[in-house]
Amino acid sequence: MGRTVTLVLVDDAGVPLGALPPFKVQTPWWQEVGDVVAGARLRYGVDVDVLRLVDAEQAAPPGGPVTYAAQLRSGRPDRLLPVPMPMGVHPARAAYAHPNGPRASVDWAAGQLAGLGRPDVTAVQLRTWNLSAIWRLDARGRPVAWLKQVPPFYEHEAAVLRAVADAQPGIVPRVLASGEHGRILLADVEGTDRYGADAGECAAIAADWHPVQVALADRVDKLLAHGVPDRRDPVARIRQVAATRRIDVPGLAELVDGLDRRLGKVAECGLPDTLVHGDLHPGNVRSGGQRRVLLDWGDAGVTNPAYDVIRLTEGLAPAGAEEVVHGWALRWRADAPGSVPERAVDLLRPVAQLRAAVTYADFLGAIEPSERPYHAGDVLRCLQAAVTAARAVRP
């Protein structure tokens, strides 16, 4: 499954010039634009910066016909197709989605690397969407750094990375620099993202992360002072998001009405609040075989550590998930005597899905309308999953 891509080219002032004829790329995921940039160069001899999603024929990714706005950097296309595109600038548009935004960010990263003795880099655009833009920075054909840029609601990521690195160097990418508009320059991490990891690898990820969470449980006030989000009390926001779906999702009203009681039972389980990654699935872990590095900290915050093992085991078969949770619980019982970690996991499974619904609802409220197809169906999906999880274990 791939995509059929249409690029609406704009000039440096953002004025539409017309569209390149549609072309196909193999990668189906809309936010991945490395093959889009390469395809425009190969097929039409133009260099572009992809700015943002304009339209898609499908309701959600992956695949299908997709239209992006892209700034023409060099080259003269033989022909461009007339295409209407609104000229207005939406107030929620990310800095990297404006004309000249990508170039300004790449220039900033190149300047930072030059100051570190690496003046010879070439930037390769890999991703852009409402949650981040990512470039790989190569020197002599090898990656040396990564530029990540995030919207305002994720600008705490650099502070989180530094806090984790202080607790355990090497478990996160090294921050080389951070700047305005959510820019973060990261040292290269060798290896591959561990999508599809088995239970053994997930258990190793949990074991790597555990001592850091134990150490940071004693630094919660410092984390909050440095801008790490406080996610300890989600009830009010969950109720707001669920309010319009109480009738549509059978069982949701009962679940939400019982949240205070459920979270009171969680508190009795005795786990300390600490830093939580917030989206600890194996795809957010990179490894070359020697070590594992945890990536993408935008959803991080201070709350119960059980949320991370719940997310980590979501893609595993039941027996594998149980094995990972068992090992995780043994470690927490040793470091938090008297705690009941497995009970906390059971109680928080539906809350984790409710929190995910809130996260997606907040995304939808913070991004421009053309970007909303990425998440439009996720709120309802997570609310339904929360009810399913709640039926499995009663508080």
Results as ranks from 00 to 15, higher is better:
S178R: 09
P28K: 15
S339V: 05
L312I: 01
P250A: 14
L42G: 01
A389N: 07
R73Q: 09
H326W: 01
D218L: 13
L42M: 04
E180Y: 04
L252T: 06
R237S: 13
P350R: 09
C202Q: 07
P250T: 12
T313S: 10
R239D: 05
Q353I: 00
R343D: 11
E371G: 03
W146T: 13
R239P: 00
D378N: 08
V172C: 13
V50E: 06
R246P: 00
I310S: 00
P82F: 05
G75V: 12
A199Y: 10
Q31W: 09
R331G: 10
A104Y: 00
L295T: 08
A253C: 08
L275C: 03
V83A: 14
A206G: 09
V144I: 14
R333P: 00
N284Q: 08
L81V: 06
Q58C: 02
P119W: 14
A217Y: 03
N100W: 09
A225C: 01
T313G: 05
A386Y: 11
G196S: 07
G270A: 05
V10C: 10
G64T: 12
V5Y: 06
D138M: 14
A114D: 06
G64D: 02
H90K: 10
Y360T: 03
T67N: 08
D198T: 09
L271H: 07
D299Q: 15
L116H: 09
W146V: 15
T27S: 02
D208L: 15
A40L: 13
P22I: 11
D78K: 11
A56C: 04
V214K: 13
W29L: 10
H156F: 14
L224K: 07
P143F: 14
A40Y: 12
S370T: 15
P169F: 04
A344Y: 10
